[in-house]
């Protein structure tokens, strides 16, 4: 699973799709971090609209990107969270790490 990444001004949007577990998180992480370090975005938007499954490895993925972004002075926005992953998100208190927005991002 490869995350699709789009840029607009200093916002980098990552469209995640499929399943996030320990296996796929490693692959997704490598792609996102390479793009973050290359573009140094002011805002990183993680769009979960296409996610069908996520376990706590997804939480680790978000926490790790939050830390990297904070070190670079950027902010994290999470959007289009499907109902199926909201339970694991709430358990982890992820809303404390970034803004959660409901929005349609047009490509």
């Amino acid at each position: 699973m490869a995350a699709r990444i789009f840029y607009e001004k200093d916002t980098m949007t990552v469209f995640l799709d499929g399943e996030i577990d320990h296996h796929s998180a490693a692959i997704i992480r490598a792609g996102i971090d390479e793009a973050i370090l290359a573009s140094r975005p002011g805002t990183l938007v993680l769009d979960f609209g296409g996610i069908t499954f996520m376990d706590s490895s997804g939480i680790g993925l978000v926490m790790g990107r939050y830390r990297l972004l904070r070190a670079l002075g950027g902010e994290l926005v999470m959007t289009n969270l499907p109902e199926s992953i909201s339970k694991v998100m709430r358990l982890a208190g992820l809303e404390k790490l970034g803004r959660i927005e409901e929005r349609e991002v047009t490509v």
Binding site: A25, R29, D55, S56, S57, I59, G60, L61, M63, G64, K87, V88, L91, A92
Partner: peptide, 15 residues
Amino acid sequence: GGERAGLGFAVMESF
């Protein structure tokens, strides 16, 4: 540490 959230058992217990 690192990328592990430390929530595996917490998820199992709550689900």
